[in-house]
Write a protein that binds this DNA or RNA. Structure first.
Lengths: 201, 201
DNA sequence: GGGAATATTCCC
DNA sequence: GGGAATATTCCC
């Protein structure tokens, strides 16, 4: 039946929101728990059959067979069967691909036997107005350690942000113009109202 | 089999991105197409069996049986079986619930027989700062004829302008907050003024 | 690898 | 109903 494949709601999602992940977070992101679960599940398979497993040191994991992994395992834990979407999430949470010829990923806080570390892993934040980390404005030394191209990239990003800010400023100014006009009208109304209440009655 | 329930990729998703939905858009959002499809599919059912259908005038639609709709129809078109998520999407696209005792929804541009209108429906915008990532081509030349130091100077100037723009933006936002508060007060005054034919004449 | 749009979930 | 976080998709 079709609905079978829709994963049951994950219980730990509820709690995590209320607490907020900022300082003392209890619940790992669902993506991390599920990925960890999925590795635990595979631990029970014999080595020969493993689609995915922890690496030798337990410091990362390897997807041995991406095709099977995507078709069989992903839908059991996620709402899709696309390897690329899984990779996208890994990147979002700061995992690194640490081998060139196989799909091995690692994250400092994602280790075999250390489920409790998961809650220390955070999403990379998407901050619309902030600088990318490598463009930290306080980093005045940028010019020393960077190539012309890198500085120029930084410059272009600033230019882009600049355009956005100007547009936003314009929009805000339009809003203000609107409010000013409104204020004038309201004051007119009020004045009329105060000046001539007598006549009608 | 589990993977059966994962909807096949929808072909019209590809095109819509490239074009951009701003002014002359060709492709409706997947959510809209799918919802329309789902209604078309039900058109073939006899009236007695309908889980969902267009309303009498074709100006909206009614989910007659939310339970069955969620369990049976949603998973065929979406990656979930939650009625509330469907509702959330309807709200995102500006649909209105137009009956109190049944699940009837309406949107000006969502009408029976008018699939072409779908592409005029837009998401309500959540827009912190949106500007398509363009790379300024004319500015690319700067890198050829300039030294690292010169580019960096340009960069620093932009950074400065940027800071200023942010400050200005903040100030404008404060002005707007001020106007909003003022508007509330004026409206209160006006209301009082109108309600109480003061001056006791 | 990551930006950004859309989808889904959760919460108020 | 909608804000906001997370998930999924698409594209560069």
């Amino acid at each position: 039946m079709a609905t079978d494949a829709i994963p049951a709601p994950v219980s730990d999602q509820n709690l995590s929101r209320k607490i907020g992940r900022s300082s003392r977070m209890k619940c790992p992101a669902p993506f991390l728990s599920k990925t960890y679960d999925l590795l635990e599940e595979q631990e029970e398979e014999s080595n020969i059959n493993k689609i995915v497993s922890w690496n030798g040191e337990g410091s990362g994991f390897v997807v041995w067979c991406p095709a099977e992994f995507s078709e069989v395992m992903l839908p059991k834990y996620f709402k899709h069967n696309n390897f690329s979407s899984f990779i996208r999430q890994l990147n979002t949470y700061g995992f690194k691909k640490i081998a060139s010829k196989r799909w091995e990923f690692q994250h400092e806080k994602f280790q075999k036997g250390c489920r409790h570390l998961l809650s220390e892993i955070t999403r990379k934040k998407y901050e619309p107005s902030a600088f990318p980390t490598y463009l930290n404005p306080s980093a005045k030394n940028i010019i020393l350690g960077s190539t012309k191209e890198e500085i120029n990239t930084s410059r272009q990003l600033l230019m882009e942000e600049n355009q956005n800010l100007k547009r936003e400023k314009m929009e805000l100014q339009m809003q203000i113009a609107h409010f000013k006009a409104l204020e004038v009208k309201l004051l007119q109304c009020l004045t009329q109202c105060m000046e001539s209440p007598h006549n009608k009655n």
